[in-house]
Design a protein around this nucleic acid. Sequence first.
RNA 1: GGCGCGUUCGUCUAGUGGCUUAGGACGCUGCCCUCUCAAGGCAGAGAUCACGGGUUCGAAUCCCGUACGCGCUACCA
Length: 487
Amino acid sequence: MISETPRVRFAPSPTGYLHVGGLRTALFNYLFAKKNSGKFILRIEDTDRSRYVEGAVENLINALKWAELQFDEGPDIGGSFGPYFQSQRLDIYRKHADELLQKGKAYYCFCSPERLKALKEEQEKQKLPQAKYDKHCLSISPEEIENKIKTGQPFVIRLNVEPDQIIQFDDIVRGHVEFESNNVDDQVLIKSDGYPTYHLANVVDDHLMKITHVIRGEEWLSSTPKHVLLYDVFGWERPLFAHLPLLLNPDRSKLSKRQGDVAVEDYRDKGFLKEALLNFVALLGWNAGDDQEFYYLDELIEKFSLDRVNKSGAVFDLQKLNWLNAEHLRKKSNSELLLLLKDEISKSQFKDRYFPDEYLLRVIESMKERVSFVRDLINNCKYFYEPPQEYEQKAIEKNWKPETPDQLKKLAEEFSKLTNPTKEDYENSFIKVSEELGVGKGKIIHPLRLAVSGQSTGPGMFDLLFIIGKNEVIKRIVTAIENIKPL
RNA sequence: GGCGCGUUCGUCUAGUGGCUUAGGACGCUGCCCUCUCAAGGCAGAGAUCACGGGUUCGAAUCCCGUACGCGCUACCA
């Protein structure tokens, strides 16, 4: 056994933001660790200097923290297997590459990019089944190597893949997988800038950090034979592999920026709740085998298992995400929603206005079943925050009759007689007036709604009146009568 | 091109040889509830389980082949 306690890692490269596919990978690692009382480690794979992005690591960590996927070891919190930035472990990789060099399992290569390019073109022209490096530098004598290095010739270190081998491993998700070593290229291990490639770095680090399960996206499946080879050549025990199905665009290609939002930050900024995003992404490629679709994080931990992960890619379906968001929002308590709403107000056009908690709580109670996002608690019912700025034209045409102004005037008069009216008081007054006028409820209720809210949809009429309050209601009725001019 | 992986309603999926006239969810349609919009309830449309061969008394489920899709094929991760 490698270790009693499972240790897993999420190893993103800092390219600027956290991809939702990355979030799913992080989540599965996290769930697996928590479920099995293991450790969840964050490691930054920053070995490509040309792709260095300022602030990317901070973004990554912030996104993970936002989602509440707290890691046990990582860049900003440390741990006993650090450093957790690969760029700070260069000497380690070099040392291990040297070991391979000594064992004859790796070799220096001085080929120029031009020769490599020409080689590839030549191989393609000859229609060779697969294009790979021709081991040209394997035959250079030790003296010559020493000389080239001494004179400052740039070099890389390549893995010396033995031909005619069968490389096999068992993937937790996909079962038995095998490759022929003839199809595996002599992969560069150390680049000419001295940095390791992913292949070397991830194997060395996973071993040194005692990673037991490598849970990552399917795009890595094809390079797993290289990794397996490295474990064997170092004489290390291999971790278990689990390759997760890809997240897909609607056209079934790998989820990409070109076809919509892919950054976790984008979804956060659009107002998605972290609970909903996590819940949604958990269901992409995994299910517990029952009909449950609504989950909180702790339930996911409870039910998660790698052997219920699917093999085929999953389309990222926004409609279902929206539904889950509404579902999670409705399940939240009003006081929880109050905090979120106040935060949203502070970012809205009403940021300078004051609304008592008690008032907002009423708004929430009346609206929570009707919205999908916290910000809808403002945008779908602005009339709770300011008088109607305009009146829905279609509703005017449909409900504003010549006799309406008089009827509403009568209602306003009746309302003005009330002191501290409750919802029921409004209703009683309303019934009284409609009886006196001899008109059906619906004949006045729609114009009333229009006058008070400017809209034709919303919470129950009497809730609306109660929340807005007597004086304001009367004021709005008067304003409406003055301003609504049917065509 | 090579190698690898995959293929159940539009989408996410259940299904591991008979319980399946293939179940659920999102979305869609209709009805109910109702002052509107939602929520909720009910109903409906929607999958010859990619295709073709086998194995078996019996296959979405096992085997083989084909097609299609996707991934990888870098001194990117």
